[in-house]
């Protein structure tokens, strides 16, 4: 079983730290990406995602700590390990004077990949028809897809994708999600994908790591992240006059906030509490237009996680 927790992770970092001159960027990151997972690496812009990606590829040298890919030290076996890794770092680095096909060919020859892969990856990302055009004529979305083709070229076991949905239109984003899922589930790839928007990847990922100001503030499976939210459910009451209700039932509506005209929001305590509140409102002669439990979205949780560090 690929996702067995006893298996060595395909990618892990130990106390990975990095500083630019005197400015610390990353603080003791301990990433753990299991084989066969799609790991969403989340964080606001400037949190250190791209720097981490560069460290994971050996483009930067860590100030301290280490990276292990496939159980081996990256610093010692960089060339050997990178043979099994495909990467797309930020905006893809394309040679604008070359056609799409020539761009793929240049990387294919560099990696010693069989010739038939060029047409395969171009078809996989839907660029076969435009492969003869110079890359300078490509739209942002096409550039992104060509970058993905370069990453997929060696049929890698591990894919590192930095903001791969950048510049894609909604259809492109949906296609990218489907592609990532198919790469993982049907082709057994392990994928680390970074984003600053959880909504873009929550339908795709199996695991999540949240980075804020160079620190990992959450790491776990998607259900783990969802469990974090359970304590943060809200009870939403729609009535005629929010203030009147608050004055009439100060005990039951302690901690309630006015969220809109006639709308009160308070922390969800229990079903009994909700029933008691309904009964109290009816006996006080207040109308109940609506009474419901609201779960925070993953986005709220993500914002909550990243905001906590800001305070």
């Amino acid at each position: 079983m690929r996702s067995a927790s006893t298996a060595a992770p395909l990618l892990e970092s130990h106390d990975l730290s990095f500083r630019f001159g005197a400015r610390p960027i990353l603080h003791a990151l301990n990433l753990r990406v299991e084989a066969g997972s799609i790991y969403g690496f989340l964080g606001p812009n400037g949190a250190g995602k791209s720097t981490t990606m560069r460290l994971l590829l050996g483009l930067l040298r860590p100030t301290s700590g280490s990276v292990r890919l496939f159980g081996h030290e990256l610093a010692r076996h960089r060339v050997a390990l990178l043979g099994r890794v495909g990467a797309l770092i930020e905006s893809p680095s394309l040679y604008d004077h070359l056609t799409g096909r020539e761009n793929v060919e240049a990387t294919r020859r560099l990696r010693g990949v069989p010739a038939h892969r060029t047409a395969e990856v171009l078809a996989l990302v839907g660029l076969s028809a435009d492969a003869h055009r110079p890359a300078r004529e490509y739209s942002l979305g096409m550039r992104q897809r060509l970058g993905l083709a370069l990453a997929l070229l060696p049929n890698p076991d591990l894919l590192l994708l930095d903001e791969p949905t950048n510049g894609l239109d909604p259809t492109g984003i949906i296609e990218m999600r489907a592609l990532l899922r198919s790469l993982c589930h049907e082709h057994g790839k392990t994928i680390l994908v970074s984003s600053h928007l959880i909504s873009e990847i929550e339908k795709t990922v199996t695991h999540v790591g949240v980075i804020q100001r160079g620190r990992l503030v959450f790491q776990g499976s998607l259900p783990d992240l969802q469990r974090l939210q359970t304590g943060r459910a809200q009870l939403v009451l729609e009535t005629e006059n929010a203030d009147t209700c608050r004055n009439l039932l100060p005990g039951l509506l302690a901690g309630a906030k006015v969220a809109g005209p006639g709308i009160l929001q308070l922390p969800w305590l229990s079903r009994e509490h909700a029933a008691e509140l309904a009964a109290g409102l009816v006996s006080a002669g207040q109308p109940i237009y609506g009474l419901r439990q609201e779960q925070p979205t993953l986005e709220d949780t993500f914002l909550h996680l990243t905001a906590r560090m800001n305070e």
């Binding site: 060339v79 990178l82 770092i89 680095s93 394309l94 040679y95 370069l150």
Partner: peptide
């Protein structure tokens, strides 16, 4: 030829 992002791509490939 490599100065527009090419180094990043090149040095992340399995060549020394």
């Amino acid at each position: 030829l490599e100065n527009r992002g090419g180094w990043r791509h090149l040095l992340a490939q399995p060549v020394g």
